[in-house]
Computed example of a mutant assay.
Amino acid sequence: MSTHPDFEGLYRDVIPSVVSVYVGGRRRPGGAGSAFVYDDHHLVTNEHVSRLADASKSNRVELRFADGSWRVGDVVGSDVYTDLAVVAVDDVPADATPLRLATENPSPGRPVAALGNPLGLEGSISAGIVSGANRSLHTSNGFAIPDVVQTDAPINPGNSGGPLVGFVGDTDDGPPYEVVGVNRAKQGDNIGFAVSPVIANRILPDLVADGHYRHSYLRTRTLDVTPSVAEANGLDTPRGILVVGTASGPDSTDILRGCSGTTRLRGWEIPVGGDVIVAIEGNEVRTHEELMRYLITETRPGEPVAIDVLRDGAPATLVVELDERPSGDRDRDTRGGGGSRIPIE
């Protein structure tokens, strides 16, 4: 990779495949969002962008390509839990070629560019680096998207759904750029987020083929085991995630067991008595984000999974058959693998 990233070259090569998205025939400040070409007949955007089309009861969006031409697309697939959506469109301009989606998540420090339609300013590019990886980003439905990419490249309203593009250096099988995230949100100065390519690669093929993605559902509410949680639960070391509650009830002996009460420690009410998940299918679980990432990328509803836990301080292995998460579920108390946080020191 060059010491000085060629953002001019990146813009020239990538911008024909970046699309501005409008809903209801209105070109308004901020627009509806952005998208990029995924294959010869589909674009990728955010679910919350496509939701505007659904609200208009048309399920259609108007698309403006970089060459100035317009198309009308149909939202054919969406997933509220990862904020991804797919738009089908005929007759994509010849120079709007599909952008390659990275197979691995980018590392912090990698130069990137966010392209799209911020504040209605079509064909914009902003640059920065990957600031962090493996973040968890909470959505309006109470679900947390795992594995999110953090960047300091400016992302503003209207950028949503556009590509976060990274350099790959010299390559013999295509351009030296790849999409390393689907831009989603801004939180504070110099902090933006994008859905990771690992998550996108898992979700998008199903959205194209079936219109939806079937999420595995563990029916648990969890809390990371911090030193305070470990102390309150009589654990020697802070390790794994505590099952605060389950949809199946606290008295079941053949599935995960939730907490039976709370104890007060240094001013905080901390749940106690639940199983502590330490691994799934032999893969160590240190945070609820790791559990969620594994459920999304490695499992399907109906599959049995082996979950290693500490129950009353003793190791045990439980086999749990995964459910399918209900479409549009908003029950924060039974979210699979994740959970609302309580303040912990």
Results as ranks from 00 to 15, higher is better:
residue 1 M to N: 14
residue 3 T to I: 01
residue 6 D to Y: 13
residue 12 R to Q: 14
residue 16 P to Q: 13
residue 18 V to F: 01
residue 19 V to N: 00
residue 19 V to I: 13
residue 19 V to H: 11
residue 21 V to E: 10
residue 21 V to C: 06
residue 23 V to A: 11
residue 24 G to T: 08
residue 25 G to I: 00
residue 26 R to T: 14
residue 27 R to W: 04
residue 28 R to T: 15
residue 29 P to E: 13
residue 34 S to F: 00
residue 36 F to P: 01
residue 36 F to V: 07
residue 37 V to Q: 02
residue 39 D to A: 02
residue 40 D to N: 15
residue 48 H to V: 02
residue 50 S to M: 03
residue 52 L to Y: 00
residue 52 L to T: 13
residue 58 S to N: 01
residue 58 S to A: 03
residue 61 V to P: 10
residue 61 V to C: 02
residue 64 R to K: 07
residue 65 F to Y: 14
residue 69 S to V: 07
residue 70 W to K: 06
residue 75 V to E: 02
residue 77 G to A: 00
residue 78 S to N: 11
residue 81 Y to V: 07
residue 85 A to Q: 09
residue 90 D to W: 00
residue 91 D to G: 00
residue 96 A to Y: 03
residue 97 T to P: 08
residue 99 L to I: 06
residue 99 L to E: 00
residue 103 T to L: 08
residue 105 N to Q: 14
residue 106 P to L: 10
residue 110 R to P: 03
residue 116 G to M: 07
residue 117 N to P: 00
residue 117 N to M: 07
residue 118 P to I: 12
residue 121 L to S: 06
residue 121 L to Y: 06
residue 124 S to H: 07
residue 125 I to V: 15
residue 128 G to A: 10
residue 129 I to Q: 04
residue 131 S to F: 05
residue 133 A to S: 15
residue 134 N to S: 15
residue 137 L to G: 08
residue 138 H to D: 15
residue 145 I to R: 00
residue 147 D to G: 07
residue 150 Q to F: 04
residue 151 T to G: 13
residue 153 A to R: 06
residue 155 I to D: 09
residue 156 N to K: 05
residue 156 N to T: 08
residue 159 N to F: 05
residue 161 G to V: 03
residue 167 F to T: 10
residue 170 D to H: 14
residue 172 D to K: 12
residue 175 P to N: 01
residue 176 P to H: 04
residue 176 P to N: 10
residue 180 V to Y: 08
residue 186 K to Q: 07
residue 187 Q to P: 06
residue 187 Q to W: 07
residue 187 Q to H: 15
residue 188 G to Y: 00
residue 188 G to R: 03
residue 189 D to F: 14
residue 190 N to E: 15
residue 190 N to C: 02
residue 191 I to T: 01
residue 194 A to E: 03
residue 195 V to Y: 06
residue 195 V to C: 08
residue 199 I to H: 02
residue 203 I to M: 00
residue 203 I to W: 12
residue 204 L to T: 11
residue 206 D to H: 15
residue 212 H to S: 12
residue 228 S to L: 11
residue 229 V to Q: 05
residue 230 A to Y: 11
residue 231 E to S: 06
residue 231 E to N: 11
residue 237 T to K: 05
residue 240 G to I: 03
residue 240 G to P: 01
residue 241 I to E: 08
residue 242 L to R: 05
residue 247 A to N: 08
residue 248 S to N: 14
residue 252 S to D: 14
residue 253 T to S: 05
residue 253 T to Q: 12
residue 254 D to R: 11
residue 254 D to T: 15
residue 255 I to F: 10
residue 255 I to C: 12
residue 261 G to I: 11
residue 264 R to A: 14
residue 268 W to Y: 15
residue 269 E to P: 03
residue 270 I to H: 03
residue 271 P to G: 03
residue 274 G to F: 00
residue 276 V to F: 08
residue 277 I to C: 01
residue 283 N to M: 13
residue 284 E to W: 01
residue 285 V to G: 08
residue 289 E to A: 14
residue 289 E to S: 14
residue 291 L to G: 03
residue 299 T to P: 00
residue 300 R to V: 05
residue 301 P to E: 06
residue 301 P to W: 09
residue 304 P to S: 07
residue 305 V to F: 09
residue 308 D to H: 12
residue 310 L to M: 12
residue 311 R to A: 09
residue 313 G to C: 12
residue 320 V to C: 04
residue 321 E to F: 01
residue 326 P to L: 09
residue 328 G to V: 06
residue 329 D to M: 13
residue 332 R to F: 07
residue 332 R to D: 05
residue 333 D to Q: 15
residue 335 R to T: 05
residue 339 G to M: 04
residue 340 S to M: 14
residue 344 I to S: 12
residue 344 I to T: 15
residue 345 E to V: 11
